[in-house]
Design a binder for these strands. Sequence first.
DNA 1: CGACAGATGTCGCTTAGTCAACAGAAAAGG
DNA 2: CCTTTTCTGTTGACTAAGCGACATCTGTCG
Lengths: 205, 205
Amino acid sequence: MAIESFNAEQHARENLDPRVRRSRQMLHEAMASLLRKKSFEDISIQDIAEESTLNRATFYSHYPDKHTLLQCMIGSRFQELMARREVKLGSCEGALKALALATCDFLLETSRATCGGKAQLEGSVQAAIVAVLRAMLNEGLAYRALNGTVSAEVVTSTVAWAIFGAANTWVQTPERCSAEHMSELIDRLLSSILHSAVAPASNLG
Amino acid sequence: MAIESFNAEQHARENLDPRVRRSRQMLHEAMASLLRKKSFEDISIQDIAEESTLNRATFYSHYPDKHTLLQCMIGSRFQELMARREVKLGSCEGALKALALATCDFLLETSRATCGGKAQLEGSVQAAIVAVLRAMLNEGLAYRALNGTVSAEVVTSTVAWAIFGAANTWVQTPERCSAEHMSELIDRLLSSILHSAVAPASNLG
DNA sequence: CGACAGATGTCGCTTAGTCAACAGAAAAGG
DNA sequence: CCTTTTCTGTTGACTAAGCGACATCTGTCG
């Protein structure tokens, strides 16, 4: 239920009843707001209903539980950040670095906006972030000629998790370097992996 | 239709369907937002519908026209300002001045948040503001012994319009004094009128 | 002048959200 | 331990909002 509902939420983002868009938006905001006050496991469905001013039954008509809500919230906010920065892999050079930078910024901001400070992210949340990264990487590769040595899915999955892993340990490092510097580092580490998937003629920054 | 619907909106503010509250809130915000971009007469119902992300039919189920919406918006925002400042005529001393100050601040802020800058207020809008003033003055007098020389309604109406008149010309004065000073002035001008309605023993600041 | 694009109210049908009530699963606590 | 309370999912009846369509009523242009 988790990933499917998240994807459904994202893909049909346009032609979607304004009411459900609003309700989900309100549930997202309620969750974000509550996370500033208490830890995730202390948040009840009732809390979410009250904070969002929506009825409890309405919550259940959108999400089966609070984990799924959190996952969808993270995914959609991460995606919004990407959209705001207009991060697109179409424009080769520096795209990978931009992706890494966005991930670093997002994780840092998320951990700051959370009650526990740097509370370890839920497993499902990690998956949500990686899902966005994978989708973007896949889209980036879609327009390129591939050499069939490895499946594109494997490559993008590898790179996506690698970005997440790097960024995640980075935010949890007490004395960390700048996000800018970190993303530069990630770019250098991973660009070769990405190149290994595309045909020699094609070029990916 | 105008005043009645406004009052209905205010009085039943608590036990009111959340959906209705939300929709009206969104319509208010849409109107306020549009007023920053264009003048009132250039705003169409469709504009309001689009800006609020509500359906055009939904607008008509709340307000008969944009004039009524504007009026309700002004009234409710003015009332909110009062509530925020906890202006209450129960606490005698300085209450009238606080009322005047709130009115000055509100009119100034409203004219600033309007496209035309200092565009003359609609007649219905003036009535909305005065209605709030009158209601507060009436409530303030309700707990006091009155000498029957003049009806309380006449007094509060007089004072309310006087406050509005003073504040309104004040905001339209290019080189005006501070709102603080102006409200002090209004207080001195009008407090005697208010006193004329209450019994000698009672005291109203 | 008519043609035409756009705004206005209004209507019927569909769907989302509200609300009260329910039974069952945890916690709390004496 | 058993009671009491709180949270949880779920249901069904009711109401608000969405949507498309329609007949107007503008204003504008050739």
